[in-house]
Design a protein around this nucleic acid. Structure first.
Length: 615
DNA sequence: TGGGTGTAC
DNA sequence: GGGTACACCCA
């Protein structure tokens, strides 16, 4: 198709003035691989041998419940949230059950269907659990179990696949960049590739004849399903060999996950993220598909472009409408300039994606875990009394306390920098209020709920007819507080006691009584020799008995000091109506001067989609 | 920083 | 459709 121009260079108009890169940018689908490419380590997103996978857990929530309950793999099972199915496993799908069904209809189709309701927090219980009397008026769902299982899978991938970047993309998906280990294996298996022919310049290309001669069995199809073959395919390229090696590694990792953790997965392997994702959906359930470069144009052209990641929403709709188009092929005649008139900054990304190009990186977000933590509840019947609002804030606060505590087992110094409360009244769009959240080691429900209550007052005030239909409480800006970040190094010293009081009453969502200071035990009730300090705010003598181990003693002392400080913090929250002032007068004030973070990161998707719509 | 939007699973 | 998570935008 002349109009496709997949290997042409529209980039001349795109990047005018950037003559240098001209040669490389649009040779993507059929790159000439040179010794320089093969032997250099850091070609990044321009690497012609780049290989990316997307691995997706099959019917993840359902699989989690099957594992938890230890049922047979062929048991039809669905996961319920209130009255709706949120996951349907593959055995159940055989009965024609879909996510859109209601519990009733599902049972009609399959009377012996196993129906599991997601875990919920229940009034009076400290932890989420599986109960018989599910009531949306009093319970709140908990997805914690799934989050934990999800983390196990991602962790296992990282273990099994050294040298790969692993990006957890959602609760049930991860992108994996195989480029580095694949290159190593390639050189290992075809050692002659590592030797640049003496007479040859680095830029000499490795011919495809070489590839054909040396590769045992590269892919036989454009998109290969297991066991499927097709005749008359184009010759294998070195990129095909790379895909094939990645497929081996991915297959081994998938099997490991299945055996060790009991989850089947479906993977897609291709040259970039969006294609890997698309390819993974080609065939589901314990399968793996590969998309070769040579197959991309034919694969993409008939594709509904709204299936492409980030084109599934309003932007995709707007494009469909603007050009009266539905497939990728329909859009290939639109010039970049034309698109830019309508869609501005997004256009380059869109234009490239339509041609099989996506330069977004697979980045390991593993170190920073989640940057936010949200607990939310839609109210089945709108609440009308402030007291009900406080009740739900307390429930949400309890969940956040629990979850942050869990997260701190991995990184003890995790610090949520702000607390945000959202509330929606009736039909209106939700409103939110937020406030800085000081560093507190002793993160109790009381402290969070108190801060939440303040936000609630700002948000809904003492409106008598409040009619609130949804409440959300969130920590945002979660990060590790580094020692150099503040003058509170003392707070960041490792706390000696590692035990996690999960069943402590403080996380019980019903513990309404007991103010912020009611559970504070001041550790100066011993009369042996003491380390002590006088609190500058209240003059209290904080002291702990010395122990044999001076290090240990130091820790205990530090902890006692922190707890005392937390006490003041809670008091401030309770009595002061000016949050700014609290922070300023609190002994933790120093920590709010966060160091300037100048992280300029490239967005995973089209940049500034929203901007376009705002306009 | 505070408040809001869009997208996706 | 509910419960999350995240990046980005504007003031």
């Amino acid at each position: 198709m002349a109009s496709m121009n997949l290997n042409g260079s529209p980039r001349k108009s795109l990047w005018k003035g950037k003559a240098k890169a001209t040669e490389e940018d649009f040779e993507d689908l059929n790159p000439v691989i040179t010794y320089r490419h093969l032997l250099s380590q850091n070609l990044g997103v321009r690497d012609p041998l780049r290989v990316i996978a997307l691995c997706d857990s099959d019917a993840f929530y359902a699989a989690c419940e099957m594992n938890r309950l230890g049922v047979d793999t062929d048991t039809p099972l669905v996961v319920l949230q209130w009255d709706a199915l949120i996951a349907v496993n593959y055995p159940a799908r055989k009965f024609g059950i879909s996510r859109m069904d209601k519990k009733k209809d599902a049972l009609k189709r399959c009377p012996h269907l196993k129906v599991v309701h997601v875990a919920t927090y229940k009034e009076g219980e400290a932890e989420p659990g599986y109960w018989d009397d599910i009531d949306t008026n009093t319970h709140k769902v908990s997805l914690d179990y799934y989050r934990r299982e999800s983390l196990k899978i991602a962790t296992l991938f990282k273990e099994i696949l050294p040298g790969c970047e692993v990006e957890k993309a959602s609760i049930d998906e991860a992108f994996i960049d195989f480029t580095k280990p694949v290159r190593e294996l390639l050189l290992q298996r075809y050692p002659y590739l590592a030797q640049v022919p003496p007479a040859a310049p680095e830029e000499k290309s490795i011919t495809e004849e070489n590839a054909n001669d040396s590769v045992q069995s590269p892919q036989k199809n454009y998109v290969r399903k297991e066991g499927e073959t097709k005749e008359s395919e184009p010759p294998a390229t070195w990129h095909d060999v790379a895909l094939s090696i990645a497929a081996e590694l991915m297959g081994a990792a998938k099997e490991e996950v299945r055996l060790k953790l009991g989850y089947t997965t479906s993977a897609g392997i291709s040259r970039n993220k969006f294609l890997a994702k698309l390819t993974a959906s080609y065939k589901k359930f314990n399968s793996q598909s590969i998309l070769r470069n040579s197959a991309i144009p034919k694969y993409l052209k008939p594709m509904q472009f709204q299936k492409i990641r980030f084109l599934g929403g309003k932007l995709g709709d707007a494009i469909a409408k603007e050009y009266d188009a539905s497939t990728v092929g329909d859009l290939l005649t639109i010039s970049l300039e034309e698109m830019q008139n309508k869609f501005g900054e997004n256009s380059v990304w869109i234009y490239e994606v339509l041609r099989g190009i996506d330069r977004n990186e697979v980045k390991d977000k593993g170190s920073t875990l989640n940057k936010s933590m949200l607990a939310s509840k839609n109210l089945p019947k709108p609440i009308t009394k402030a007291s009900e609002g406080y009740h739900w804030i307390r429930v949400l606060a309890a969940e956040l306390a629990l979850r942050l505590r869990d997260a701190r087992e991995m990184s003890p110094n995790l610090w949520p920098k702000t607390l945000v409360l959202h509330a929606r009244k009736g039909y209106q769009a939700g409103r939110s209020k937020q406030a800085p959240f000081p560093f507190t080691r002793d993160l109790t429900v009381d402290i969070i709920a108190l801060a939440g209550d303040k936000l609630w007052k700002e948000l809904v005030g003492n409106n008598t007819t409040l009619n609130v239909t949804s409440v959300q409480l969130a920590f945002t800006g979660i990060d590790v507080a580094e020692a150099g970040q503040s003058s509170i190094e003392g707070f960041l010293k490792p706390v000696s006691s590692k035990k996690r009081p999960r069943d402590s009453p403080e996380v019980n969502i019903d513990s309404h009584h007991g103010g912020p200071n009611s559970d504070k035990t001041h550790p100066n009730n011993d009369n042996s020799s003491k380390f002590s300090y006088i609190c500058s705010r209240c003059g209290m003598d904080i002291a702990v008995p010395t122990t044999e181990d001076s290090n240990d003693h130091d820790d205990i002392f530090t902890k006692a000091k922190m707890e005392h400080d937390d006490f003041h913090f809670a008091q401030d929250l309770a009595h002061d109506s000016q949050p700014k002032k609290i922070v300023a007068t609190s002994s933790k004030a120093a920590i709010s001067e966060s160091k300037p973070t100048k992280k300029r990161k490239s967005p995973p998707g089209p940049k500034g989609i929203e901007k376009f719509f705002r306009k």
